[in-house]
């Protein structure tokens, strides 16, 4: 057995007596250079910022949104104002030329972009309202109610939605027209019955995914101790859901919500393209593409503008959705 302070052992290990002195405050501080602890949101934002493509797409989307808002306001033309200057090429007066009725294509394109973005955002909000409420009720009530509610979602998912969407968007138009002529709904009248029926139809068939993921996230969070603690202190179920469970599922909600936007925009442009969407003369990117189809060999540019715009908008939302999912997924945290 060796002695407690055997210099030979120190020598063999290459340790001098100074190494065993207690560390000074300075040395302690220099050792403390750990990463400051980040909150979930700061961490997510840091990861999002590192994704260059996502930043480029955010800037692009912001530009498109600003153009869509201010383009029609600043331009001297309106989307339905016709003139004798038919089928003109790009010029200073008309940056993208005019169509077969002499309408300024730039203003129509921006107006159509407005419609597309509006469809995306309004559908997203409606889907969040329906999906979160439905999912939260199913998860919190549980039991037979949950089972029935989820079987209903399963059944809805098996219905080929496009067929019903097409039919329903036509059916809803007339009752809606009667409704918005009612003086108490004048705020909605400016949107037009075609657009409102699209909002409703798209929301009706897109909330299923949201309801499922919200329910899943809530069920996962519900088993945690803090919920038990809150319930033990006498919290009502509404409090638990609204104050604890939903805020902790916000990542899942954001991911599903951003997924809804591009698919809603795509469906709207398809409906308008086959002539069942927004009613003329209000331009939608889909109906502009449909109008351009007749003169496509002589005036291909009239097709290219709306086509590129739809694809750009959808691309932006797809990339943003992907990078948000990467940023918000806690498993990606390093």
């Amino acid at each position: 057995m060796t002695e407690k302070y055997d210099p030979k052992v120190y020598q063999a290990l290459g340790i001098t007596e100074q190494d065993l002195e207690p560390a000074t405050a300075e040395e302690k501080a220099s050792n403390d250079q750990m990463r400051p602890s980040l909150s979930y949101w700061k961490d997510a934002f840091r990861r999002f910022r590192r994704n260059k493509l996502a930043i480029v797409m955010s800037i692009l989307l912001l530009t498109i949104i600003l153009l869509a808002i201010f383009g029609p306001i600043l331009s001297p033309y309106t989307y339905k104002g016709q003139s004798a200057d038919v089928r003109q090429g790009p010029s200073l007066a008309h940056p993208l030329g005019t169509d077969k009725l002499g309408r300024d294509i730039f203003v129509r394109l921006m107006y159509g972009t407005r419609i597309s973005l509006l469809v995306g955002f309004v559908t997203m909000i409606l889907v969040c309202l329906i999906g979160i409420t439905y999912g939260a009720i199913a998860a919190y009530v549980g039991g037979l109610c949950d089972n029935l509610m989820m079987r209903f979602v399963d059944l809805m998912m098996t219905i080929p939605s496009m067929l019903i969407i097409i039919l329903l968007s036509v059916v809803l138009r007339d009752p809606l027209k009667a409704l918005i002529e009612n003086p108490s709904f004048t705020a909605l009248a400016s949107l037009g019955s075609g657009l409102i029926s699209i909002f409703i139809v798209l929301a009706l068939f897109n909330w299923l995914g949201m309801a499922r993921s919200v329910r899943g996230a809530l069920l996962m969070n519900r088993t945690q101790e803090y919920v038990l603690a809150s319930e033990a202190m006498g919290a009502k179920s509404k409090w638990v859901v609204v104050k604890h469970l939903l805020p902790n599922s916000i990542g899942v909600i954001i991911i599903s919500a951003t997924g809804v936007v591009p698919s809603a925009i795509m469906t709207e442009s398809f409906l308008s393209f086959v002539g069942l969407g927004v009613s003329a003369p209000v331009p939608s990117l889909g109906s502009m593409a449909n109008d351009a189809l007749n003169g496509i060999s002589s005036y291909p540019q009239n097709m290219i503008y709306p086509a590129v715009m739809i694809s750009l908008i959808i691309l932006c939302f797809n990339v943003l959705g992907d990078s948000l999912r990467d940023a918000l997924d806690p498993r990606m945290r390093k």
């Binding site: 591009p262 795509m266 442009s269 398809f270 393209f273 593409a289 189809l293 496509i296 291909p300 097709m303 290219i304 086509a307 739809i310 694809s311 750009l312 959808i314 691309l315 797809n318 990339v319 992907d322």
Partner: peptide, 18 residues
């Protein structure tokens, strides 16, 4: 692939035709 999944199929069809 990310680019192409952002193009609705009706636009892809027309683009091909053009």
């Amino acid at each position: 692939a990310s680019l192409f999944v952002s193009v609705p199929s009706f636009i892809m069809t027309i683009a091909l035709m053009l």
